[in-house]
């Protein structure tokens, strides 16, 4: 264990633990947009900037991202200095210009006193803020069907070469973990469409209600050893089935 200071408070942490985790444990609020606990930090949004210094740095300090900066003994972390607040505010202004429609960003911007953003470029109205959560989720946890393609302002999240992916399993994890709901998907009846591919949802073997795409079941079965068919019963029928099993048990 090591000791460091966050906003004047001495706190304990593991060496190398990320500042954001420590701050959150200690109840210190640090805003984030690209952070997701399930995946490695990316450092893309820069909202979690904090100012760090050390007693031996002779007054010198630097801005770092809390989500991936490793804690070290005697580090002095300040989460709300003028420079930090100004940088976060500018970042929010840049994001508002990119996604004028986003509730999430507008709300955060208000917190930072950004009532009258002035920057605009053309007719931008992206929904995606390129926080990289969906791509990390899919690449690190699912099948790696999507990634960031192109560079710079052209950068976007898509399947490689924007072609229909044959590794996507239609699990929707990407869409559901997106903080700005930028990933479109559609589910009607037994069909679910995402990234230009339509998946058939296997009907429940008992009641016919939609369960999950066969592809997801196969992927799951590979990882867990359960039989693919075992996934094709809907929750309601499974619960009812459980209830029936209980009935045969002598309580």
């Amino acid at each position: 264990m090591i000791e460091l200071t966050i906003d004047g408070k001495r706190v304990q942490a593991r060496k190398g633990e990320h500042l954001l985790a420590i701050a959150r444990r200690e109840g210190v609020e640090i805003p984030t947009l690209c952070h997701h606990e399930a995946v490695e930090p990316s450092g893309a949004c820069r909202m979690c900037m904090v100012e760090v210094t050390r007693p031996d740095w002779e007054g010198w300090s630097k801005l770092v991202t809390a989500c991936n900066f490793p804690a070290e003994e005697d580090l002095i972390v300040r989460t709300r200095t003028d420079k930090v607040m100004q940088t976060r505010k500018e970042i929010l202004e840049l994001l508002i210009a990119r996604t004028p429609g986003s509730q999430l960003i507008a709300e955060m911007a208000r917190e930072y006193g950004l009532d009258h953003p002035t920057l605009t470029v053309g007719e931008l109205s992206e929904k995606c803020i390129l926080c990289d959560i969906c791509t990390r989720v899919c690449q690190n946890l699912v099948t790696g069907a999507i990634s960031r393609i192109n560079r710079g302002v052209e950068k976007e999240v898509n399947t490689p070469f924007a072609e229909v992916s044959d590794v996507c399993i239609g699990c929707l994890a990407c869409a559901k973990s997106c903080p700005t709901d930028a990933i479109e998907f559609k589910q009607v009846g037994l069909e679910r469409t995402i990234w230009g591919r339509t998946f058939d949802l296997v009907p429940c073997t008992q009641c016919g209600a939609p369960t999950l795409p066969k592809e997801q079941a196969e992927w799951l079965s590979e990882r867990t050893g359960m039989k693919v068919e075992e996934y094709f019963v809907c929750v309601k029928c499974k619960a009812a089935q459980t209830a029936r099993t209980y009935e045969n048990i002598a309580w």
């Binding site: 820069r46 500018e90 840049l94 390129l130 710079g152």
Partner: peptide, 20 residues
């Protein structure tokens, strides 16, 4: 602007405005 990798907000978005 053309060469920024586009990963982080200040560079991707900031440069675009600077150019503008």
């Amino acid at each position: 602007v053309e060469e920024s990798c586009g990963k982080c907000v200040p560079c991707r978005e900031g440069l675009r405005h600077l150019l503008d």
